[in-house]
Amino acid sequence: MRIRKFAAIDVGSNGVRLLIANVLEVEGMEPKFSKSSLVRVPIRLGTDVFVNGQISEVNAQRLVDSIQAFKLLMQVHKVEEYKACATSAMREAKNGSEVSSLIKKKTGVTINIIDGSDEAAIIAATDLHALIENDKTYLYVDVGGGSTEFTVYSQGETVVSKSFKVGTVRLLNEMVSRDTWVEVEQWIKENTHQYENISLIGSGGNINKIFKISGRKLGTPLSYKYLNEYYQYLTSFTYEERISILELNQDRADVIIHASRIYLNAMKWSKASRIYVPKIGLSDGIVKSLYNSTLQGQTIG
């Protein structure tokens, strides 16, 4: 038996995460992945970028400090390999490359700025396929702060995938036009209308939080009715009340409303009545792809 450690840094639009994972190798068995540590820092880069076009000096320094702290944590955990990826906010920031270079200079960590299709491909490297039944159809919806990735799976295969600039931080700052919503609606309807009994698979911190609050057993789906009722429940409270009464973190209490809207709309437009929440995302995909690369003898970038 051998236990190996890998890590992923996800520089998102609503927060920055470090996932450290154990990979258990036993001869004659498939490797088993488990979370060893998960740290999240609420640096809302999306507010800087989507409103002002660039990352502020204050948040650039917070990001450098966070990455430095993550590097120390990885050293303590004796991580074998790691990779850092950044999504919408860093990608769209005028000074994204400049901030990335600063991080490299100060911490030695290379930030890989990826696009929506890269993000979807990395997520596909997770154990998502192990959750998909070959005789069923799913619409996978990964909601982030800056964008949402949609992927249709049918007969165990990827049919089509697309990324839209509809994210929780954009919605919070009223930066998603009616035309963009119409485009998303049309894409979902065009790519799901031919399927019957389609289900959603949801990923992202907000749907994970909603699922945890539901108290349901992992693998049990949430119904459209439940999600809609919870959305109505959330909107009956003010932002301050969602923090003080519902005990949501301050950087979750505002965006969770907008994430719920995205999932509900996706369910309505695809005519899905349930959503599965497997608790996977970009960080999990990075770890899985890193591990697979070491097995193939590839050099990690």
Rank of each mutant, 00 (worst) to 15 (best):
R2E: 14
R2W: 13
A7D: 10
A21K: 07
V23G: 10
V26E: 15
E27I: 10
F33P: 05
V39Q: 14
T47E: 10
V49W: 11
G53E: 11
L72T: 05
H77D: 06
E80A: 03
R91A: 01
A93Y: 05
N95R: 02
S97I: 04
S101E: 11
I103R: 09
K104E: 07
K105R: 09
D115E: 03
A125W: 00
T126V: 02
T137L: 08
Y140F: 11
D142Y: 01
T148H: 04
F150R: 00
Q155N: 13
V166P: 13
V169T: 13
L171G: 08
N173C: 07
R178H: 10
D179K: 05
V184H: 05
Q186K: 15
T192L: 09
Y195Q: 13
S199H: 12
F211D: 10
S214L: 14
Y224M: 14
Y230S: 08
Y230F: 14
Q232T: 07
E241A: 12
I243M: 10
N249R: 08
D251T: 04
A253D: 00
S260F: 04
I262A: 02
L264G: 12
K268H: 09
R274Q: 15
Y276C: 12
P278L: 05
P278G: 00
G281Q: 03
K288A: 04
S289D: 00
L290A: 03
T294C: 04
I300E: 07
